[in-house]
Each structure stands twice: as structure tokens, then as C-alpha cells.
Amino acid sequence: MKLSEGRIGKSYKILNFEKLAGSTERRLESLGMTPGTTVDILNNKSYGTIILRLRESRYAIGRTITRHVSVEETEGPSLLPLKTSAHLSQKLASRARESADKREGKAHG
């Protein structure tokens, strides 16, 4: 589904951008709206101009942009207490794996 179809009070995970001007996409990304990020929709006028919360900041985004952003609904707001942040645990896991791989590599070498 598209971000423009998002419902108020729900949270959505950004999947990708479709046919969006490069400069607009980069602006969104540098604000932290990269694929995989969760946003909360705070307001949505019927035609897709929305207010969303992204990384603790609020933005108004026009429908000419939201129509080109693919999302999927996800559970719960993005503002979880940070200790249970999915990002963090993922990262910890991946780094642990990396270092394990390295050690293994050394052992073989």
C-alpha cells in the first residue's frame, strides 16, 4: 500500500520509493526516512496529505510525495522505549555475528 492511504494513529514501515524525484527522495532519506524505518501517521486528509512522526520529529508531507512511498502496516508506534528498540538489538546481533565470523576466519587461516 502507499503512505497516502495510511490511517491516522497507525504505524507503517517504509518499504521503498517509487517514481519519486531523486532530490525529494534524498531529502526524505536524510531526514531518516529510509526503507525499514517506522513512521506514525498523526493526520491524513482524505487525499493523502499527511502529518507523520519520523524519528521524534513531526513533518507535513504532501500527497505528491506520499503517493510514491510504499509502506506496510506494522505494529505499535515507533516511539518504543529505546531499550527494546528493534534497530539496536538487530545491530547488536549482527555485530556479534560479524566478530564471530572473523574469529572463525582467523582460525581457518
Binding site: R26, E29, S30, G32, T34, P35, G36, T37, R55, E56, R58, L79, P81, L82, K83, S85, H87, L88, K91
Partner: peptide
Amino acid sequence: LEQRFIRERYDFIQDIIHECVFNNHAVA
């Protein structure tokens, strides 16, 4: 690739916030 860079930076920022910011609930 560019998105990956951006995402890693934001991940790192979350690490920093995890270490330095407390009571980060009810925002605005």
C-alpha cells in the same frame, strides 16, 4: 548503498541516544 549509509548513521545515533538520553517517552 546510500540508504545503507544513512541507516547506519541513524542506527549509531540510536546507540548514542540509548546511552545518553533517559526518560525519553512522552514526546510533545
